[in-house]
Design a binder for these strands. Sequence first.
DNA 1: CTGAAAGCGCTTACAG
DNA 2: CTGAAAGCGCTTACAG
Lengths: 345, 345
Amino acid sequence: MKGIKRLAQHLDISIGTVSRALNGKPDVNEETRRRVLDAAALLGYAPNQAGRSLRRGSTNAVGFMIESNDETETNSDNFFLGVIGGLTGALLKHNLDLVVLPCSVNEDPHDYLQRIVARRLVDAVIISATQRRDRRIDLLKAARIPFIALGRTGGPDEHAWIDLDFEGVAHKAVARLAALGHRQIAVAIPDNEINLGYVFRDAFEDAMAHHRLTVDPSHIIRARSSEHGGYTIGNALLAMEKRPTAIVLVYEMMAIGLYRRLNEAGLTPGRDLAVVGFREGPQSQFLSPALTSFRMSLRDLGIGLAEGLLATMPAYADQFPQGFVHKLWPMELVEGESDAMVIGR
Amino acid sequence: MKGIKRLAQHLDISIGTVSRALNGKPDVNEETRRRVLDAAALLGYAPNQAGRSLRRGSTNAVGFMIESNDETETNSDNFFLGVIGGLTGALLKHNLDLVVLPCSVNEDPHDYLQRIVARRLVDAVIISATQRRDRRIDLLKAARIPFIALGRTGGPDEHAWIDLDFEGVAHKAVARLAALGHRQIAVAIPDNEINLGYVFRDAFEDAMAHHRLTVDPSHIIRARSSEHGGYTIGNALLAMEKRPTAIVLVYEMMAIGLYRRLNEAGLTPGRDLAVVGFREGPQSQFLSPALTSFRMSLRDLGIGLAEGLLATMPAYADQFPQGFVHKLWPMELVEGESDAMVIGR
DNA sequence: CTGAAAGCGCTTACAG
DNA sequence: CTGAAAGCGCTTACAG
């Protein structure tokens, strides 16, 4: 004998009453409820999730799909853990569990998600690393699974998403550099199909145009989103006949490799080349020179995602009536020393 | 109509036969099996996990519990993602899913795990961030849930665990520094209750004794496991009247903050103070000077954990007959420039 | 306020 | 080789 039957037998009442007491139904004698709750705590009872899910038709769990490929494995910083912290906290308030679903590098992300969805492992999903054209969106829509995307796609916006404000970052970075006298500004973007590279490039070109600056095509540098990618960017810059005086990085860790390469060439970031990083990390201020970058709260982003997701779940939509969230997450410039140089006229 | 019933109706056979065909039971006509498999693929059918779990009494899922506290959120870098990559791959071969279970900072890890276990959310568990005395071990033993710990505890070893070879790291680091002439060597350990701090300190003292070097108590420096912690270590070192000539860090990211603090004081790592980091990360070789550190494969560690866990699961024990794994994961020294100095006699 | 019963979607011994 | 039926642990309308 186990589970709710054992608890009921122990208390000598029916399993129905135990269940109602545990689930806070109103039609239970308060004395009975107290006895049930006490016994449950004593015996460490928690309802079997499979039994409950099967009966209720929902799992009480939200899935956060992450892809662990070589690039994220070797290079990703603390981004996901921070977001997860915010997510768990916000979902816990609504008695929802977060389970992180890591898609193996050996499996196609679309197939993986399809399996998860068909098996009804979770009630709702957060996807990340959105591609420009992301078939997972169609899959989730067809299956009518509530979801939110961390990252835009190139397609229509008939779903909830939150993305970092690449436009704002590009504009603030270019405005700052332009004010310091820079006219030849380069940008580093990732060399993969993740949508953010396209978004950031467009935003950068738009910002440059706004300041009546022209973008030299060779100044748009594709590299891996990693420290090593930063080093190769350094190589590319050093090999240029017409070297830019500033560069905006799409990934802050690139700064480490770029600093190294510049140092090897006897050049100093912030004196010989202005460097603006992307997201402020725990390292930004401890690098030499400290990296100018953009601040945001990962925890708040997690909370935002949770709320945006809840808004798409029928059971919670009345508490979060915002509909499909389309949000650019603001990022605030933090001055460092890495672009502390003025270009003479 | 949905699920297996719909599939059976579509094929005009019984759900029992559909189930047997899908699950590879031998007593099914091959023609029938093919039809079932084709239809399942066509309709995107995958068995409802709650129904299956309830009937089978197992979930086919393994949980990896991680704690997302302020420290790990801001500082634990790519460690977990790398391990997760190895885990998913190794478990996928046995048709087991990995779900990552992040314990909210608002919840007690023991209570969280108890809930997960009582609800039978997963068949087996990997725990990390082991405390010196970790009640989760008792909980899992009492519930008879197969598990493996990533990290030792201070208690008896009647369970499977894998831990990094702190002893090996301490010995190799001290041996190398001693050979370069260092006699005053400091060590940085974390300022929390995670067991690894105790283990590393003991290993360091043992290594020092082995080389007949004495450890100045003030040279055992407790700090946060972060870049910022490295900076405070720099402060502590600079304030000492009898400054050590070398330091061994328990967390490689501390090097960033320490480098910064030394630079501010006009000192150069590798010339004025030898620095040995812990785990080689993607940044180690791109720092200036490159950080001497220890190499290991996160992916292989994940695979090792998966195999150690499978050995504790009755259904897989015959394939992995190693019993309770107790393993120190080897780490190989990678020479950098951060300790490239020789102390005169 | 409580109990008895149905049924969620599966798998599997059993009968044929 | 296939079908009918039981039952995994819950929740919830329904009857009393």
